[in-house]
Design a protein around this nucleic acid. Structure first.
Lengths: 206, 206
DNA sequence: ACCTGAACACCGTTCAAGT
DNA sequence: ACCTGAACACCGTTCAAGT
């Protein structure tokens, strides 16, 4: 039954999961679902629970901590993108974060490997987590966006952008989210893993 | 009528906006709404349009480009957080990005001020945008999350985290999103505005 | 041009009744 | 213990009919 529900969600999205529809798919009465799982809310809870438990396999690889963290981030993003509907459900019910507990452990290990400890390591872990989840949420958002009135593309295509036509042209193109994610993540990781104090150049006293 | 709809959404969230409820609030028949705006979908479209148009006032201040960009990011985050329900609607309809067009212009100016041009400037603008939107989406997600089974806090409170009790304790505390946003944004901005090539130290050939 | 009530096809949920 | 159909209170939407 949970299987059938997951199937419906995977194929047609969370809204397609109606009690009557599920009952029809299971060739049973609507009310028997209530006896087994108890209401739509409980059904979604169970589904989300299952999804959260299923995701989480991560094995870091790479030479430097920066590379390994970037790889972990990339894997996480991939996992989230591969199950858009289920992740949407998890997100809808506010559990996106809990899905990340296994990843947190891996990131802690990498922070330590880079020489980061204590509060700064904790901040690093969370910054990467927010980066990944945030990026995926924005991507999902963009993908759902219908072509709208003064669209980003056409708006920048008529703009000079302060004598920088290359920039205007770049912003008129659709975003290469893959590349943007890589660049932003690496920039963030590099900066946070840097051994020196945030506001001082590398050869300063600290 | 649009006013009344906005009021309902602001107070009780998008789901509270029902055609029958709105009709009652306006003391009219349900069907007359259909004559004026035409269906719930169109009503939400109009509402979102209004919200997108209203947001957008940004004036950067600070000494360095890094400071100004961080300030802009902070303002954007604040705006988004101040209208959670309307922003949720905008997000739901996939228009969060379009809301950011005015901000993009400001960021372009700052990128130029920092000496960044062309494709790299475009990437910078988008990285900051994704950073802000992403962070706010994650925050919203976290706030909606009910206290759940093995919660982040209690999970890390029993963990040793590889001989780093300070880190374990830090991860057992709730996230200081304000601070995390500031740290992550500055790290990202600093790294992207750095004049040197990403993978080389400052005194290298480039 | 503007508003109306009745009706339709959905929805989640409850409940008394079956086996 | 498990399943059922009927019924309830909601939804968004349509449509013919009013003024």
């Amino acid at each position: 039954m949970l299987e059938a529900a997951a199937g419906l969600v995977k194929r047609h999205g969370p809204d397609a999961l109606t009690m009557r529809g599920l009952a029809a798919a299971l060739d049973t009465a609507v009310t028997s679902i209530y006896w087994h799982v108890g209401g739509r809310e409980a059904l979604l809870d169970a589904l989300v629970e299952r999804t959260v438990a299923e995701l989480g396999e991560i094995r870091p690889c790479g030479r430097t901590p920066e590379e390994r963290v970037a790889g972990v981030a990339r894997d996480l993003r991939r996992q989230l993108r591969d199950h858009p509907h289920l992740v949407a459900l998890v997100h809808e019910r506010g559990l996106t974060e809990r899905m990340f507990l296994p990843a947190q452990r891996v990131l802690v290990r990498e922070a330590h490997a880079a020489g980061l400890r204590g509060a700064r390591a904790a901040e690093f872990v969370r910054a990467v987590q927010f980066q990944v989840v945030g990026h995926v949420l924005v991507e999902r958002n963009r993908e759902r966006a219908p072509a709208q009135h003064p669209d980003e593309r056409e708006l920048w295509s008529t703009e000079t952008a302060g004598d920088d036509p290359v920039l205007a042209r770049a912003l008129a193109l659709p975003v290469d989210t893959e590349r943007l994610f890589e660049t932003a993540t690496r920039a963030l990781v590099r900066s946070l893993l840097a051994p020196t104090s945030p506001t001082c150049p590398p050869d300063s006293a600290g």
